[in-house]
Design a binder for these strands. Structure first.
Lengths: 262, 262
DNA sequence: TTTTTACAAGTAAGCACTTACTTACCAGAA
DNA sequence: TTCTGGTAAGTAAGTGCTTACTTGTAAAAA
């Protein structure tokens, strides 16, 4: 829990709070700063960086434009402050730690399902930040790169490590672990994107996060083919299937060579 | 390097050369219009709508700003023209038609793999449009809504129909078809998004589209668990599983009522 | 000739950011 | 307690620059 910088300092000494800041009135510097950040995040996430004016931010925060520039030297600085603060906050370590037990038990369903639920819940209860991230990704902002490195990439590698272990234990099939990781993160993250951005009315599919996580896990682990078909399909080498398994074998070999990558 | 590339085509018909279109010179109205659209799409996709100026567009197209407004009454009109043109062009009917053979044969692997390849190739060779779509989705532009209705939603419903058929034929397990469709489209589309936007250097995973399509299909149909594990997990009814299947049954009933597609 | 394609040179509005000034708050001297 | 001065929180009204969009005019094509 890094309660970095921000506020803390100028403690209001036992005085009447006086002011919720929603409009007009005076506020302690730190609080006002936080409020501006909150408002700015909402607006940036809705309209994008260049689609949001500093005047709008000031207006919604109930202060004059000059106040915004008292706290942040430039508009870009304000943007960076948001991404910076949030990117560092989301640690991803907590999420992984919560899965520790399931991992040691080798309970794959719990591991994958827990991971998916973590991601889905995070996005659901911080929609603004998720949208902001998409904006900054499209914009190619360097702070998105940072977020990608610190969170997504880390998670993918972590998941890969677990998958490799389980493959060696014989519980998972011998496929390129990163492909499996991408498939699962893909189902989950895409589902979030649809819920948040593409189809917030959920006109196509409207299920609670827990169930989505379970179903995706079920699909990842066991597939959607019936067992009869599954067995047939795996053992029987049709033309196309043969091609596939050849590819897969060469991949497995390549993967072993590449093992140095941590 | 800012010299606009574009222009090549429009054969000057044995006339005074005069014009390569790159700067100055005359062009037939329709061609110039198309060129402006092409340039605008590239810029909008890179910097977003409000991040792109009409001056930049004119400059890159090798004309004056006034020309842009001769062809498009407003900047918004230009934006709409792009989305409109492309959204209507991508028919999704072709893609589905190409899968017809595989569908009649009941070759699930070919159907899913073909679909994934279609999507992956489309995004790869029209990266600008994919990025533009993301921008317009975030912006909540009405033309994205249209694209979603006409393409993504249609594809999802189509896929659902196929999945239902195959479930009734006993080839696929009895899960909510839309969940399966979302899972598969999710793997595929997320993979595209990573390649195009999040990690264009492909630092985590760099495989050709054909292989990605095959591997995702394999995962969807058969899962990643080994068969021993798979059998155990499917037959053994844990508490969680029971709850899940109850939900699934009610869904299946609802699905039967809805069945209009033949 | 007329029509179409083009652009230089605008204009008014909007933008990020600044300046010069006012107000609220609180510690400590009277 | 009551003054009082230092300072942080606040603003109205700019600054100069950029933006989307226009106008008037020239010239190539038909």
């Amino acid at each position: 829990m890094s309660k970095s910088i921000e506020t803390q300092k100028n403690a209001p000494p036992g005085r009447a709070p006086r002011n919720d800041g929603s409009s007009g009135g005076r506020m302690a510097g730190g609080e006002r700063r936080q409020q501006i950040v909150r408002v700015a995040m909402r607006l940036f996430s809705q309209r994008g960086f260049s689609g949001t004016t500093t005047r709008e931010i000031a207006q919604e925060a109930g202060v004059s434009e000059a106040m915004v520039f008292k706290h942040f030297a430039t508009k870009e600085d304000l943007y960076a402050a948001i991404l910076d603060h949030k990117a560092c906050a989301g640690d991803m370590g907590d999420a992984c730690a919560a899965l520790g037990g399931a991992m040691e038990r080798g309970d794959d369903a719990a591991v994958f399902s827990g991971l998916a639920q973590g991601v889905l819940h995070f996005h659901e209860h911080d929609t603004d930040f998720a949208r902001l991230l998409m904006h900054s990704a499209l914009q190619g902002h360097e702070l998105f790169q940072m977020f990608w490195e610190r969170n997504v990439r880390q998670m993918a590698r972590f998941l890969c490590g677990y998958i490799r272990e389980r493959q060696q234990a014989g519980a998972l099939r011998d496929m390129e672990p990163m492909v499996i990781a991408r498939a699962f993160i893909g189902m989950t993250l895409y589902h979030s994107l649809v819920n948040i951005i593409f189809d917030p009315q959920r006109s196509l599919l409207d299920i609670p996060n827990e169930r989505a996580a379970q179903e995706f896990t079920e699909i990842l682990l066991h597939g959607v083919a019936t067992q009869a078909t599954a067995g047939k399909s795996i053992t029987k080498p049709s033309g196309q299937k043969k091609g596939l398994s050849t590819v897969r074998q060469s991949v497995a070999i390549a993967a072993k060579k590449k093992k140095s990558r941590s």
